[in-house]
Simulated scan of single mutants.
Amino acid sequence: MYKELVNVSGLRMVEAAARLKSYSKAAEELHVTQAAISQQIRKLEGQLGCKLFYRKGRSMHVTQQGAVLHEAICSGFNSIIEGLKKIQSEPLAGELTITTTQSFASLVLVPRMWKFALAYPDITLKVLTSKETEDLRLGKVDVAIRYGRAPYPEYHCEVLFDDPIVPLCSPSVAKQLDTQDPSSLKRCWLIDYAAKEYWPEWFERLSIDPDTSHCQVLQVNNIDVAMSAVLAGHGVCLGSAKQAAHYIEQGMLVQPYAYGLEPGTQYRLMYDLESPRALRIKAFNTWLRDELACT
């Protein structure tokens, strides 16, 4: 029986008649005849086995059952309207959710978020840190910024930067180095933050003995810990100058030697081309690229 009730035009007639308390006014609003309104409502009452309206004077009023149905129809129509809004293009103002790695968030995004807030006060950024790439088609996350070169054919991907891995340290540590002799780095603490040891490869690229067995080496599990160590003046790490640009600009870190390892650190920005938040994504993408271009 309920399959027969799926008649959107009939439900619209009930909603209009209940709201306007008149079959004739409902007919005028919906551009149909009063007879069509009356016929549809009688058909629905027959299917349901109860009266939905009763006449009082010149007005039509809903019965108790009619009030219940009217409330359900209004709720359903409101849900449909909200759904339509969500799948259509949203305005520039609103929320934008970004997922990225802990290191990119702490080194690149968070130090610059105040600039974005000044440029786009009507866009609220929400940053989530995760190693996983969430499904951007579900609407819960709008933009993913990820490290590496793995393909993501289901999304639109743009390279933000592909930066060589270079030595980074505090100004106090840099003073202890011979600017003409990169091998002087072996007298400092060398900080590695990956399963692969980058320092032997970096030295070998410069035709320097790659053996670091006699060096003081600190192994940490991620770039955030490595950066904390070098900011505290505890040695030198290999990292991306683009990623550490905020600290370099503030004079908290320096790059003592220009030599870098390639392929280096690549970060990409990804999003769903059919996202209803396309305007916000474009604004964020343009702003972030401008920020990175300045470093």
Rank of each mutant, 00 (worst) to 15 (best):
residue 80 I to S: 10
residue 106 S to F: 01
residue 168 L to V: 12
residue 139 G to S: 03
residue 164 P to C: 06
residue 119 A to M: 09
residue 159 V to N: 05
residue 129 T to V: 13
residue 138 L to T: 13
residue 80 I to T: 10
residue 106 S to M: 02
residue 122 D to W: 04
residue 168 L to R: 12
residue 97 T to C: 05
residue 95 E to D: 15
residue 94 G to W: 01
residue 169 C to D: 08
residue 114 W to D: 11
residue 79 S to E: 15
residue 168 L to H: 10
residue 159 V to F: 00
residue 97 T to E: 05
residue 146 R to V: 14
residue 163 D to M: 06
residue 161 F to N: 08
residue 129 T to A: 06
residue 131 K to M: 11
residue 102 Q to V: 05
residue 148 G to I: 01
residue 169 C to E: 05
residue 148 G to F: 02
residue 90 E to H: 06
residue 95 E to L: 14
residue 89 S to Q: 14
residue 136 L to I: 04
residue 168 L to G: 12
residue 134 E to V: 07
residue 137 R to S: 13
residue 158 E to I: 15
residue 78 N to S: 13
residue 76 G to V: 02
residue 116 F to W: 07
residue 115 K to D: 07
residue 120 Y to K: 15
residue 151 P to H: 06
residue 102 Q to F: 05
residue 157 C to D: 11
residue 89 S to A: 15
residue 142 D to E: 11
residue 125 L to Q: 05
residue 97 T to Y: 04
residue 130 S to M: 02
residue 94 G to S: 01
residue 96 L to D: 03
residue 159 V to M: 04
residue 167 P to Q: 11
residue 160 L to D: 12
residue 105 A to P: 01
residue 78 N to A: 13
residue 113 M to P: 03
residue 88 Q to P: 00
residue 107 L to H: 07
residue 87 I to F: 00
residue 151 P to Y: 06
residue 84 L to W: 13
residue 130 S to N: 09
residue 127 V to M: 05
residue 150 A to N: 13
residue 167 P to Y: 07
residue 158 E to D: 15
residue 158 E to T: 15
residue 151 P to D: 12
residue 124 T to Y: 07
residue 95 E to I: 09
residue 130 S to I: 01
residue 139 G to H: 04
residue 136 L to R: 05
residue 149 R to H: 13
residue 141 V to A: 05
residue 124 T to H: 13
residue 113 M to H: 01
residue 150 A to Y: 09
residue 163 D to Y: 10
residue 79 S to M: 15
residue 101 T to W: 03
residue 101 T to A: 07
residue 124 T to A: 12
residue 151 P to V: 02
residue 115 K to C: 06
residue 158 E to P: 09
residue 109 L to D: 02
residue 139 G to P: 00
residue 164 P to R: 11
residue 108 V to K: 04
residue 95 E to G: 04
residue 117 A to C: 11
residue 114 W to Y: 08
residue 159 V to G: 00
residue 84 L to P: 03
residue 76 G to W: 02
residue 100 T to R: 08
residue 89 S to F: 04
residue 125 L to I: 10
residue 142 D to Y: 00
residue 77 F to M: 12
residue 77 F to Q: 13
residue 134 E to I: 06
residue 154 E to C: 06
residue 129 T to E: 14
residue 117 A to N: 09
residue 125 L to N: 00
residue 120 Y to R: 13
residue 93 A to S: 15
residue 101 T to C: 01
residue 121 P to Q: 06
residue 150 A to D: 15
residue 152 Y to S: 13
residue 118 L to V: 06
residue 98 I to Y: 04
residue 131 K to H: 14
residue 87 I to K: 02
residue 143 V to Q: 03
residue 147 Y to I: 12
residue 86 K to L: 07
residue 88 Q to S: 12
residue 111 P to N: 14
residue 106 S to P: 02
residue 88 Q to I: 00
residue 95 E to H: 10
residue 139 G to V: 10
residue 116 F to Y: 05
residue 122 D to I: 10
residue 80 I to H: 11
residue 158 E to Q: 15
residue 119 A to Y: 03
residue 112 R to P: 04
residue 123 I to S: 00
residue 167 P to A: 12
residue 127 V to A: 02
residue 161 F to C: 09
residue 161 F to E: 08
residue 86 K to T: 08
residue 160 L to F: 08
residue 154 E to I: 08
residue 133 T to E: 12
residue 83 G to T: 07
